[in-house]
């Protein structure tokens, strides 16, 4: 089992390792302008949209594509990779899960990401970062941490399903976060028997993770059975990567999978059960919005 120190570093640690050649800082954003306006000195950029998705199919990069990406970015197998980003580290957590999927041995998150760094008034630079290309070799993908749609259907009523979207998205009142028009599923609702623990409950206002004790209390009170396997999902798999990090890396639960297809896939499948309303519901699904609104 990992410990918090092995997977999470604070801003002081990063500051102290800015000149450490064995440490590679990687900023992972979805807002492509963020890195250009300022990044931590020496950090390379991985763009969530352009770098971490297959350009044609809806899928993760293949092993070969991932090797090419990391080689291009100048990352070696032996490097300590520290990921950080905006959006309370959602996309950095997604990249962390990706690095683990392809077997990178030493990868960590900067607790609080860009936000905590900025709130501390620490330095950001617009300097161009160039690293020598490497010959990165990835492992075969570790699918023990990735859920596919059939895994999710099989988990209904038998495993922990953790829906980390907002209560309105969970209940089916919204298809996407309220403030932006975005890609959507065909149907609203949640996977029957899923519990709703929004990602934000695992983090403090400054984006840092809550303590292990607070996190254990949070998921325990929500009904997560730590003796069962778990699948976490959201809408496109990045908020649930944040929760996957909490459950698998911080709390050390075995057999936690992130479902990157998430609700945009599940809510568009033909013939699978869906539950509406605030309750987890029964394996058959059903319910209605009226019961809970």
């Amino acid at each position: 089992m990992t410990t918090r120190d092995e997977v999470l570093v604070d801003a002081d640690w990063v500051q102290a390792h800015l000149d450490d050649p064995s440490v590679v800082l990687v900023e992972v954003d979805e807002d492509v302008s963020a890195y250009d306006t300022g990044h931590i000195a020496g950090a390379v950029r991985i763009d969530w949209t352009d770098d971490l998705q297959d350009p044609v199919r809806r899928d993760l990069l293949t092993k070969t594509q991932f090797e090419a990406l990391l080689s291009r970015k100048g990352i070696s197998n032996g490097d300590t990779v520290v990921l950080y980003g905006g959006n309370n580290n959602w996309f950095a957590a997604y990249a962390y899960w990706y690095f683990k999927l392809y077997g990178h041995s030493d990868v960590r998150l900067l607790d609080g990401g860009r936000k905590r760094w900025e709130l501390d008034s620490r330095e950001l630079t617009a300097d161009v970062v160039q690293r020598e290309p490497t010959r990165y070799v990835a492992s075969e993908p570790d699918v023990s941490i990735r859920a596919f749609r059939d895994d999710v259907v099989a988990a209904i009523g038998s495993q922990n399903l953790v829906d980390v979207r907002s209560p309105d998205e969970f209940a089916g009142r919204l298809l996407a976060p309220a403030h932006l028009p975005q890609e959507q599923s065909q149907r609203p609702g949640h996977v029957p028997t899923a519990i709703n623990v929004p990602w934000s409950k695992a983090a403090n206002d400054d984006g840092t993770f809550k303590t292990d004790d607070e996190l254990r209390d949070l998921y325990g009170a929500a009904g997560l059975d730590s003796d069962r396997d778990t699948v976490a999902y959201c809408r496109i798999g990045e908020r649930s990567a944040h929760t996957w990090f909490v459950l698998h890396e911080l709390l050390g639960h075995d057999n936690v999978k992130n479902y990157d297809g998430s609700w945009t896939e599940y809510g568009s499948l033909v013939g699978v059960p869906i539950q509406l309303g605030a309750e987890p519901g029964t394996p058959e699904g059903g319910g209605s919005l009226e019961e809970t609104s």
Binding site: G86, N88, K115, L119, S166, A178, H179, P198
Partner: peptide, 29 residues
């Protein structure tokens, strides 16, 4: 409950598209 978060732009501006109701803005800088 968290609904959304934005960063103010160069002129200190922010905007949320939401629905009618009572809300709280919590700001850190």
């Amino acid at each position: 409950e968290f609904v959304a978060e934005v960063q103010t732009d160069w002129a200190g501006r922010f905007r949320f598209y939401t629905v009618g109701g009572g809300w709280t803005l919590r700001t850190l800088a």
